[in-house]
Design a protein around this nucleic acid. Structure first.
Lengths: 209, 209
DNA sequence: GATGTTTTTTACCGTTTGGTCAAGGCACGA
DNA sequence: TCGTGCCTTGACCAAACGGTAAAAAACATC
């Protein structure tokens, strides 16, 4: 008698759903990262995605939902390099590798960097939970690891927490303040190598035991 | 016969004008710096200033005019420490003094820092002229000065342009990403001294000949 | 090719936004 | 104290905003 679909109907996601959700999130990343949340409109995102406004609201409940989905999707990838710091590796190599990976991400994924930057500058209203739940524990764990390395004399004694922060500051600056960089150091092709070498020098000198 | 007011009537600014313009600009700084230009509304600014919306539009032609007035008013103060780099001083002292002054500004004037940061992250649409006309020449001049000091062997050889950029990156990070700092390093009172000491160590090690 | 479902569109709604306008309140010099 | 010009306000726009309803279109499955 019960010919209704099962309560927990899997409702498999179609190929169109997967495609369009991706198109929308990519458009949202583009728009949010260069306008901030409040400065972005559904029309902008729809236009960027090549879909109508009601159509993107068919896939996401609201503008806020798109933003949350973006943060959830990108947070892990963003933290992966820090997560990958290997306690059993050679400390200086591990840290310089981390610095290089962060520089590479600033070059390849500036939109992601700016998405987070916009959010944090404006007080992290929608990201506070992410920061406290995902970032803080990882940050504390890696700071502890750095202190252990310092205690063992394998890298120079520095403030572990502020060391991590300064790596973020210098590397992400190249993505977040790209507009300024373009005005001040226009020769694009070689600028990234110069930047990379300079940042490498900063932290190599700082950490040399 | 000609009892009309002189063509170039000075139209002296009244004390009320001076007071209210200041109140509005201060409110605008507060609002723009924590919401970005597009994310800020005239109602927010009016509310913050304790004036009505039509009233603030009596003193400034438009939202954009407030933003431009703010940038013009703050740009000079913002660049003063760099400007003050003394070619005849002791290079390492001059540079470490600059670093310390920038840290102090991040602590005392985070709103100004965030105002600029918001604008540049979003592509500097309203600040491009300022960057090219005010910042670029100063930046080039000081980079040249740094190269001279390096050639004389008075500070270590580094990429002059990227050295300036990394000083900005590290120092302004403490103002722009304050929300993140609060989550990761909560103990406010001593954090600023730790930050200051750490930043000092970075550039002292980097620049030591 | 009929049928049920998913996707897209058209038209629309209530609210917020930047900005205007005319009229009234107020200060201040004559 | 009177008038003139500065200051302030309430009422009001048109456009843009986030979001909804319902029907049309496209699609998949048989």
């Amino acid at each position: 008698m019960d010919d209704s679909p099962p309560k927990t109907a899997p409702r498999k996601t179609t190929r169109i759903q997967k495609l369009n959700r991706k198109r929308i999130l990519d458009a949202a990343l583009e728009v949010f990262s260069s306008n901030g949340f409040r400065g972005s409109t559904l029309d902008m995102i729809a236009g960027e995605a090549g879909l109508s406004k009601p159509n993107i609201l068919y896939y996401f409940d609201s503008k806020e939902a798109m933003h949350v989905a973006l943060l959830n999707e990108l947070m892990d990838a963003w933290l992966e390099p820090l997560e990958a710091l290997n306690p059993d590796g050679e400390p200086l190599d591990e840290l310089m590798g981390y610095v290089q990976k962060k520089m590479e991400m600033s070059r390849k994924f500036p939109r992601e960097s700016r998405l987070f930057a916009n959010e944090i500058i404006q007080g992290a209203p929608r990201m506070a939970p992410h920061l406290a739940k995902r970032l803080k524990p990882l940050f504390d764990a890696k700071a502890t690891l750095l202190r252990k390395w310092m205690a063992e004399g394998r890298i120079a004694q520095q403030d572990a927490e502020h060391l991590i922060m300064s790596i973020w500051a210098v590397t992400q600056h190249y993505a977040d303040f790209e507009a300024q960089l373009d005005v001040l150091i226009p020769k694009k092709e070689i600028a990234w190598r110069r930047a990379s070498d300079h940042v490498e020098a900063i932290f190599r000198k700082l950490l040399h035991p």
